[in-house]
Amino acid sequence: MKKYKLLLVILFSCIVTGAFAQNSNDMRLNEILVHNTGNIIDEYGQREGWIELFNSSYGVVKLGGCFLSNDPNNLQLFQVPKTDIKATIQPKQAIVFYADGDPTKGTFHLNFKLKDSDELFLVLGDGTTIVDHIKLPAQLDTNCSYERLEDGKGTTNGDTACWTIQKNPSPGTTVYRERFETKSQKMARLDPYGWIMALTDMSVVFIALIILYFCFKIMGNISKKKMRNAATSTPAGKVSAEKNEDISSETCAAIAFALELYSKENETHDNESFVVTMQHTDRSYSPWSSKIYTLRKMPELKKNKR
């Protein structure tokens, strides 16, 4: 029983851990625009450079307390207000910060401006752990952004292989390519031979059915124990409990035969719903009903010869 309790505890922990596992570590620098003359306007009617952050997880992330910086020597340059409810980001959603150097304008206005070749840092609330960083290209054209090839995907160590220059910036929405790409097209690009999909899906199928297996294995063991206990609790039941464990081959054969007949519709079985039976055959003669065997014989009179 201890084993089952342990399993339940593990299962519960997994669920709880899974539910609360999402945090600021899942945030990514996603798209950056330095020179803005024809792109989005902030709530004050100004065009400024901006930084888009993306929640790459399937959980809600509270960004409050995290830092953004363009200075490697001062990672705590700008802190997102800790208690601001607007800094809560839904799964797979993006948020835009305006780099206008005026934080008094609101939560999403940074206290620094962007320049070419800046190195940007996203830092956790402890002020030291770098979640993501990227160095901007030396020369970014006006109204061109620097974005990840795929939303939130790729390395976080400053490697620029998963970044590209985009002539059609998309602040606050998915990256340009993904807006016009169907799931099928994306899959064709990422997994042209289908092996990744095949392996992923087979793993999920197996995991689902393995969980079911363990569940019913445990349930079966409990049920077996219960049946045994119920039977052995009565003195006469001890023997029958052992017998009940297995079904005899003859019973299996009879069931199999009945199923075979059942599958051949309207053949040798009668039509009782939910009951598989073999059709009863009327016999005109049976020794069980024969009068010869049920009646006593008349006593014979034996006469002694004298």
Partner: peptide, 17 residues
């Protein structure tokens, strides 16, 4: 299912097909 999926891709069908 997944074997046929991989083969169907090779046969020129789109991933959803």
């Amino acid at each position: 299912i997944f074997g046929a999926y991989a083969l169907a891709l090779r046969a020129g069908f789109s991933p959803s097909e």
